[in-house]
């Protein structure tokens, strides 16, 4: 009985040693990712179309390598200038934000996501609490840029009338539709 126990122990130790051996081999395996490399930033995005619409020319590349905590100081003014170039009649928008405040929100290009409630870019009630696949983000942004304080200004510019995707999303992971 005792002999069997010792044998079992020896077998377990042997299996353990093999496992450790294989683990060590894995670390040197050429097929595993290179873990010592340094990766340098090339592109960045938080909310849809901020850099695309509000930053111009070569500054777009600068925006892409500016860390979000420094974006407000670096890009706030030119984003406000661009907002007023797009809509010279801008006063406030449906969120009640004047040009400077709205530009400040836009400049720090991060997407806020709720951990406790509905996550949506805009669903008629909640605003900027996330972004789902089906959110009509462009029409929301057009409304905030062109729609004025109550969303009724420039009615021809506040909705592109493309309200949904060209393929149905999946109800299960990975949610995005299969490719065409």
């Amino acid at each position: 009985m005792k002999f069997i126990k010792v044998n079992k122990l020896a077998a377990l130790l042997f299996i353990g040693a093999l496992t450790i051996g294989f683990t060590s081999c894995d670390n040197d395996d050429d097929n595993t990712p290179d873990q010592n490399a340094v990766y340098a930033q090339e592109d960045q995005m938080g909310r849809p179309a901020v850099n695309t619409v509000f930053v111009q020319g070569a500054r777009k590349d600068v925006f892409n390598v500016t860390i979000p905590s420094q974006m407000g100081a670096a890009f706030g003014q030119e984003i406000q200038d661009r907002l007023l170039a797009l809509n010279a009649g801008y006063t406030t928008n449906a969120l009640g934000l004047d040009a400077a405040t709205f530009s400040g929100v836009l400049a720090t290009d991060v997407l806020t996501v709720s951990l406790t409630g509905t996550t949506t870019f805009f669903d008629g009630v909640n605003v900027l609490t996330g972004r789902t696949l089906s959110d009509d983000v462009i029409s929301t942004e057009l409304l905030l840029i062109f729609g004025g304080p109550d969303g009724t200004a420039n009615p021809g510019l506040t909705d592109d009338h493309v309200d949904g995707n060209d393929k149905a999303f999946l109800s299960t992971f990975p949610y995005l539709a299969s490719p065409w």
């Binding site: 290179d34 490399a37 340094v38 990766y39 340098a40 930033q41 090339e42 592109d43 960045q44 995005m45 938080g46 979000p68 290009d109 991060v110 997407l111 806020t112 996501v113 709720s114 951990l115 406790t116 609490t129």
Partner: peptide, 11 residues
């Protein structure tokens, strides 16, 4: 809530 953003970085 959290704030999130995506970055691409080249080796």
């Amino acid at each position: 809530s959290i704030n999130t953003w995506i970055e691409t970085k080249r080796k």
